[in-house]
Amino acid sequence: MKFLIPVDGSVLSLEAVRHVLKLAHAGLQTELLLANVQEPASLYEMVVAHDPDVIDEVSEGAAMHVLAPAVSLVETAGVSFEAVVARGDPGHALIELIERHACDAVVMGAHGKGMVRQALLGSVTMEMLHGAPVPVTLVKPSEDTALDSDFETEELAEDGPN
C-alpha cells in the first residue's frame, strides 16, 4: 500500500510518519511518498533574485531541510520511500501527487482544532478531506506531542522580540 505523507516540518507531520511506520512494523506492506510543498516565489523574491534558478535552488534546499527528519525516521525503519518536492498551492499539489504517484491513501497530522476553525482558515487538511480521491487518515497529536508543542510555544513566546 502506497501512502502519501505531507511533511511540513511540524511535530505533527512526524507523528503521521510514525503512525505509518507502526503499520509497516505490524506487517502491512508499505511504500511511502514523503512530500513537501513549497509555495511559489513572491513577486518580491523574483525581483530581488533576478534568476529563477536561484529561487528554485533555495526552495529545493528549504524543502529538503524540512523533509530531513522524516527521511531519517523512515531510513532507520528500513521502509521503502521516495521524498518529493512539489510547488504551488499545497492542497492542489498534494492531490496531483496522489494521482501522479498512484498513492492508495494519505496520512497526515491533524492539529486537533475545531472543524469550523479549520474550514474558515481554508486548511490543507480540509482540502485533502474533501478533494483527495483516496482515503485520508488524520493522526491526532499524542499526549507527549501535545506537551512538546505546548513547550515549544512557550519557548517561542519567551524568546520572542524584546
Rank of each mutant, 00 (worst) to 15 (best):
M115S: 13
V20T: 04
Y44M: 14
M128I: 09
R117T: 14
A62Y: 11
A86T: 03
V134D: 02
V85L: 04
G131I: 04
V124H: 01
A68I: 02
A49L: 10
Q29H: 13
P90Q: 00
A62R: 14
H92D: 10
L23C: 12
A26K: 13
M128L: 15
N36H: 15
V54A: 13
G112P: 05
F81H: 11
A41W: 12
H111W: 06
T137K: 07
D8V: 08
G61N: 12
H101C: 11
V85C: 05
E57R: 15
G9I: 03
S142K: 03
V136E: 00
E96G: 12
L138N: 06
M46S: 14
R18A: 10
V106K: 00
V107E: 00
Q29S: 14
M46E: 15
A16D: 06
L21K: 07
V20K: 04
V71C: 07
M64F: 08
A86E: 10
V124T: 15
L14F: 05
G114V: 09
L32I: 09
G88M: 02
P90N: 02
G27F: 05
V85Q: 08
A49C: 11
S80P: 07
E31T: 13
V106E: 00
K113Y: 12
A16N: 09
L121N: 07
Q38R: 15
G112R: 06
E99A: 11
L14S: 05
A93Q: 05
G109W: 01
E15D: 15
G109N: 03
P90G: 02
T137M: 08
G91C: 09
G122A: 10
G27D: 04
L28G: 06
I5Y: 08
V136D: 00
E96P: 04
A77T: 05
S80W: 02
V84M: 03
A63R: 00
V20E: 04
L28T: 14
H50D: 14
V20R: 02
L34W: 08
H101D: 10
D104F: 07
A68H: 11
L32H: 06
S72A: 14
V136R: 00
V11N: 06
A132I: 05
H19T: 13
P52G: 07
A24E: 02
R18Q: 10
G9R: 04
H25C: 06
V20D: 03
L73Y: 04
A119G: 10
R87M: 04
L14T: 03
L33G: 05
A49H: 11
L12T: 08
D56V: 09
P40W: 06
F81N: 00
A105W: 05
C103S: 03
A86Q: 10
S142V: 01
M126Y: 04
V79N: 01
A105S: 12
L97V: 12
P6C: 09
